[in-house]
Amino acid sequence: MTSSPPNSSFHWQYTELDDHNFRIQGRNLFYAVVLFALVLLFSLLFFYARWLCRCLDYPGPLPLPPPPSRPEHGLSKSAIDALPIVLHQVGGRVGEDTECIICLGELEEGEKVKVLPPCEHRFHGECVDRWLLARTACPLCRTKVGVRSLDLEAAIV
């Protein structure tokens, strides 16, 4: 068996690994110590602040207040009272309202209901009164509610 000659690129000696250029001295040593001290100082300050907040039961940053909402204005009480009230009749017209979509209750035969002009949708009086105090549109089709005897602009609170 013949042995191959040693490869010089893989032949290392301990003296070859000694790197004289990799020395920290002078300014480099000073900068390394200052950097280490700064990192240590900020770490200690962070942990102290965290401990202090836990001891004082500080809840953290205050939550942002919600954005101001645009207040909705509905119809005035007099405009709501001016809406027509009729007796409900079952089987009158095609697609007729058979329930109050505000309370989801059935509209009974002969029950007093309020009719919203111009869409003529029908609702229980108490239900639609509360709705129209806050909004000016029909709860079913979102059509602006007009009052026959009053101008709508004057009826808005």
Rank of each mutant, 00 (worst) to 15 (best):
P6I: 12
Q25G: 01
W12V: 09
A154R: 13
T98V: 14
V128T: 00
L87A: 15
R54T: 05
Y48M: 11
T136Y: 00
A155G: 15
Y14K: 13
V94S: 12
L104S: 09
A79R: 00
L40T: 13
L140H: 07
G146T: 14
S69P: 09
V34H: 03
P59A: 06
C119V: 05
P61I: 07
L75Y: 07
E153R: 12
F42V: 13
P5S: 14
L87G: 11
V86Y: 05
S43N: 10
L62E: 14
C127S: 08
C55Y: 06
M1I: 08
D57F: 05
P6L: 14
D151L: 09
R50I: 00
P139H: 06
V147E: 04
G95F: 09
L140E: 08
A155W: 03
F123W: 01
A32M: 12
A32L: 15
A32S: 14
L75I: 05
R27W: 08
I80A: 06
L44S: 13
Y31Q: 11
H20S: 14
L52P: 04
W12C: 04
G26T: 07
P84D: 00
I102T: 07
L133G: 06
C138K: 01
L44W: 10
I85F: 05
K77Y: 05
A134P: 03
G74F: 04
Y14V: 10
L107G: 05
L64M: 09
I24N: 04
L45A: 13
E16Y: 06
L133C: 02
S149Q: 11
C100G: 07
L104A: 10
L52T: 07
P61Y: 05
P63R: 08
P61M: 10
V86C: 01
V33H: 09
S9Q: 11
I101K: 08
Y31R: 11
L116G: 00
L41F: 13
C53P: 00
C103K: 02
P6C: 01
R130Y: 02
V157L: 09
L75D: 01
L104F: 09
N28K: 12
K114L: 06
L132G: 04
A155C: 12
G95A: 07
G26C: 03
G74A: 05
V94P: 15
N28G: 13
L29M: 12
D57S: 15
H73G: 03
